[in-house]
């Protein structure tokens, strides 16, 4: 059985005027379904590019990206759009909620366009925001907003949950709670979750940890026994 996600010698080269910048210089890795993956690396190492390619927000220059048996790297714009729409759940560093919609409506924003959405109220409850669902983002704290964002991503019932520095804008405690939520989601829903972070301290919590450096996978660690996020300190 092939892997759920497969990167085969994926390269991404940005043409900046005369200069060519190789963001990814041949990346290979595999991720199995239901895995909690941490992609770690310093700023500019190429982890965001991986996220962009994986999230269908950008196309690779060469190489193959296969998600759930489909070759995402060969998708055109329209296919990419549908891919994002139906297969990906995205959690942003800055939550990216629509300010003018309430928490519930922000989730609806996502569910309205996908095929098999989860029950919205259940999802909200799952992220612990039952009482705040009719609040606007500006009335919520950062952690609450991120919970809404996660709920939004989950409610779409995606194949893959991509999280870009989900705790980057949050304080320590809140960040931990969010990560816990993600980990629990992975475990309970058997959802493939990929978390991108520059915080190496988070590495032990992943089933699989990919260290990115200079556009390559520096090393891949598989934790047989990933630790619970609550035990991690940073």
């Amino acid at each position: 059985m092939s892997a759920f996600i497969e990167f085969k010698d994926v390269k991404k080269i940005y043409q900046m005027g005369e200069v060519k910048i190789e963001a990814l210089a041949g990346v290979n890795f595999e991720i199995q379904q239901g895995e909690f993956v941490v992609i770690a690396g310093a700023s500019g190492a190429g982890k965001s590019t991986i996220l962009n390619l994986l999230g269908g927000m950008d196309t690779s220059t060469s190489g193959e990206i296969i998600v759930d048996g489909e070759e995402v790297s060969s998708f055109n714009d329209k296919q990419l759009c549908d891919y994002r729409r139906y297969d990906i759940g995205f959690v942003f560093q800055f939550y990216n909620l629509v300010q003018n919609l309430t928490a519930k409506e922000n989730i609806e924003l996502a569910t309205q366009i996908c095929k098999n959405p989860l029950n919205i109220d259940a999802t909200i409850e799952a992220v612990g925001l039952k009482d705040r669902k009719n609040n606007f983002p500006s009335q919520l704290s950062g952690g609450e907003q991120q919970r809404v964002a996660i709920a939004r991503a989950l409610a779409k019932n995606p194949k893959l949950l991509l999280c870009d520095e989900p705790t980057g804008a949050l304080d320590y405690k809140t960040g931990k709670a969010i990560l816990k939520l993600l980990q629990d989601t992975c475990r309970t829903h058997h959802m493939t979750v990929i978390v991108i972070t520059h915080n190496l301290a988070l590495c032990p919590m992943g089933d699989k940890v990919l260290h990115v450096k200079s556009g390559k996978i520096e090393k891949m660690i598989i934790n047989e026994n990933p630790v619970d996020v609550e035990t991690i300190e940073w």
């Binding site: 759009c81 994002r84 729409r85 139906y86 995205f90 942003f92 990216n96 366009i113 939004r152």
Partner: peptide, 16 residues
Amino acid sequence: VREIATLKVLGFHHKE
């Protein structure tokens, strides 16, 4: 811009 980009990431079509 951010909102729009987010919508795009969420898989909204051009028309939407």
